[in-house]
């Protein structure tokens, strides 16, 4: 899977596009020649281990930090030059929510909405109420943010991104700190926004979740883009695996090795499972035929694509230590 292939959309249809985007802090390169291509209308998962440069990229895209090198275009316009035209069309959650603890949730939204000259004051009250409703905070609207829980603040942060109709939502780890209901709610929110034509750019560590809601994804590692494309394509880019259920573990193992595979067995002798990565040039039906020919009792046989998580680990490494 090469970086840059993003399905079949032409490059004019990109909601976010970066070329050689680089951001250095002193001599540390946080983002290293990033070529991102986020198609219009996609739900784009932006993945990467801690410290891989996701938030830094988002800051540069939103004009909060200046790129050291390279170009970024958001909604078809050069950033940060077109910041004033672009940002009113973008809703953002950047590295977690941040609010005035001495103001209520609603008052906080009023303030941030007042900062946007494109947000009409006549509808402010109604839009704040609606945004709070969408994230399930109506009952806590009058409560001081000081008294909010982590998840409530996170919901308020998402509400802030939804104050105006947006063409692009940039959500940096939106489900951080949310309870299962909140997580589900965010997932369905993202789906409904995407159905309405909004492009959603969401950074996350929760790969299962990204797999569920995203159409596209990119994987970062130590500031570099290591993979980008449709989620389907990314998964396919990984190896496939065969899983065999059989009581004849020993025999199956011998047959699979004979075919050049490297199987690993689990389970009891009565009904064990063998899994093996599918090697190039061997078709699943050949494996079954060989097994049956050798008298192995095949009780189950499946070919599985690797999960996004496996792809992620394969691309970004097993190690737990932060890569610098």
């Amino acid at each position: 899977m090469s970086a840059g292939s993003t399905g079949d959309l032409p490059s004019g249809e990109l909601a976010i596009e970066t070329q050689g985007l680089t951001k250095r802090f002193g001599h540390q390169t946080a983002v290293d020649h990033l070529d991102l291509a986020v198609p219009h209308g996609s739900v784009f998962g932006f993945l990467g281990p801690n410290g891989s440069g996701k938030t830094t990229t988002i800051r540069v895209l939103l004009g909060l930090a200046a790129a050291t090198d390279g170009h970024a275009r958001v909604l078809g316009q050069e950033m940060p030059a077109a910041l004033r035209e672009v940002l009113p069309r973008v809703g953002a959650l950047i590295e977690g929510p941040a609010f005035y603890p001495f103001l209520s949730g609603a008052a906080n939204l009023h303030r941030l909405d007042a900062a946007d000259r494109h947000a009409p004051s006549a509808t402010r009250r109604a839009r704040v109420r609606e945004a709070l409703e969408r994230v399930g905070l109506s009952h806590a609207a009058g409560k001081k943010v000081r008294a909010y829980s982590l998840g409530m603040k996170q919901r308020l942060g998402i509400a802030n991104a939804l104050l105006m109709p947006r063409e692009l939502l940039v959500l940096d780890e939106p489900t951080n700190g949310l309870d299962p209901q909140g997580t589900r709610e965010v997932r369905s929110l993202v789906r409904s926004l995407a159905a309405g034509g909004t492009t959603v750019f969401v950074s996350s560590h929760l790969l299962a979740e990204v797999e569920q809601i995203c159409t596209h994804a990119a994987i970062m590692s130590a500031g570099k883009l290591v993979a980008q494309g449709t989620v389907e394509g990314l998964r396919r880019g990984g190896e496939q695996r065969v899983t065999l259920t059989t009581p004849d573990l020993g025999e199956a193992d011998r047959v699979l090795r004979g075919l050049g595979l490297s199987p690993a067995g689990v389970g009891s002798a009565a009904n064990g499972m063998v899994t093996a990565p599918l090697a190039d040039g061997i078709l699943p039906e050949q494996i079954v035929a060989a097994l049956v020919a050798e008298g192995v009792r095949v009780r189950g046989f499946a070919v599985e694509n690797s999960t996004l998580e496996e792809r992620f680990v394969a691309l970004t490494g097993e190690g737990f230590d932060i890569v610098q």
């Binding site: 909060l64 950047i94 941040a98 005035y100």
Partner: peptide, 18 residues
């Protein structure tokens, strides 16, 4: 310090106006 600066600027408040 509160982190609200990034949200004001992303709103966008505009740096000069802020």
């Amino acid at each position: 310090n509160l982190g609200t600066l990034r949200y004001l600027l992303a709103a966008p408040a505009g740096r000069i106006r802020l």
